[in-house]
Nucleic acid binder design. Sequence first.
DNA 1: CAGTGGTCTAGACCACTCC
DNA 2: GAGTGGTCTAGACCACTGC
Lengths: 228, 228
Amino acid sequence: MEPLYRRILADLTDRIARGDLSPGQMLPSETEIGAQYGASQGTARKALSLLEARGILERRQGRGTFVAVSTDETALFHFFRLRDAAGALVTPVLERQSVTLRDATPDEVALDSPRVYEIDRLRRIDGRLAARERVVVAADRFPGLGERQTPANALYPFYQRAYGVAILTASETLAPAVAEAGQDGLEVAAGEALLLIRRQAGDVAGKVAELRRCTYAMAELTYAVDLR
Amino acid sequence: MEPLYRRILADLTDRIARGDLSPGQMLPSETEIGAQYGASQGTARKALSLLEARGILERRQGRGTFVAVSTDETALFHFFRLRDAAGALVTPVLERQSVTLRDATPDEVALDSPRVYEIDRLRRIDGRLAARERVVVAADRFPGLGERQTPANALYPFYQRAYGVAILTASETLAPAVAEAGQDGLEVAAGEALLLIRRQAGDVAGKVAELRRCTYAMAELTYAVDLR
DNA sequence: CAGTGGTCTAGACCACTCC
DNA sequence: GAGTGGTCTAGACCACTGC
């Protein structure tokens, strides 16, 4: 028998993943949610606290409980790890990007979709073309992405705003490399150090929602991680 | 007024950090801990659950609550992120290591100690000298480290077993680099890709307990991270 | 079987936010 | 002042562990 708080947890997660509850929306009080599931306030509270710990909800004493909203700040803070020599956040500037609709390749099975959009972005760091990011998402989860205005900066707030897809987790694989001249369309010299990053990003329900392959020319840059 | 559960939390953390409660030791039951602090079982439970979430305690229904023990497995799982091309854990083999007692350098102020031990390790990956790790700890927290037998593999279980210092967190800074021939005493050719990693590792109380500077020759290797 | 943590309740009071 | 989450209690029953 599954504990009551787990059922509340699963049901709320599901409703948020389906878009039944949207970003920024206020939830009923603990007492009321408890009543809806035939549970006490304490049991509803347990589920709500767990959802808060996962970053799915935000709760504030005196205000209420809200579906967490992804902003440029939170997205950068969680998922953008490039820092300069002093440890300060680096902000690449978009040079150009293209969006293509195509068939998924075999190594994109995790997206579980035959058709995908690929967003290809070239960005400048300190004036130099030093970042190339190829982002792939399932076409059926992001319908009409090719016709939309895609944002110049963080994609995750856009995913949430336009499609209700909240990115909460990512697993990355990093490898250093030595550049060939002009590799990946970047302004890099042969023999320069590069950092190659592959990312799988997951949504509220833990499903893979995005894949990326990035190349960064790393003169003076570092990648910062916290392990727990 | 600080909430009761926070005082229990802080006090237990402190007792573990001081070595008053040692790794593997069983704690009293929830009810009894509550009684010791003049609190109910539910309040003690809240503190204990938080300590479990932080990895400081381990709790098991029917068995009891125990101070978490660092094993080779948990240490590798949390803090050793090198993987081979297939994503499997890489196991470097110790070639040789040396331990030196010396004055702390200015960039080691985080250790808050005038004297430090430096453990310098060279390790083989797939038969090649491909890993150099320089580990620095405060001499007064690890007395006699130079005279002890230091382990061939994971240091963190050793820190905990021998000195009661449990490593729970680490922030790392990664940078790719291009090797010079024989750099850092490794068997690397000029122009090969390297990964440089600096780490600050924190203990139960959040204090910096260890610094490391590592160099890895990365042919076919990757570094895996999970972001949340 | 006794003892542990895990779930759940019903109710109290406090701290904060907003009108 | 009304409504929210945050803390805390006392007690119940269940599920699991180990003797």
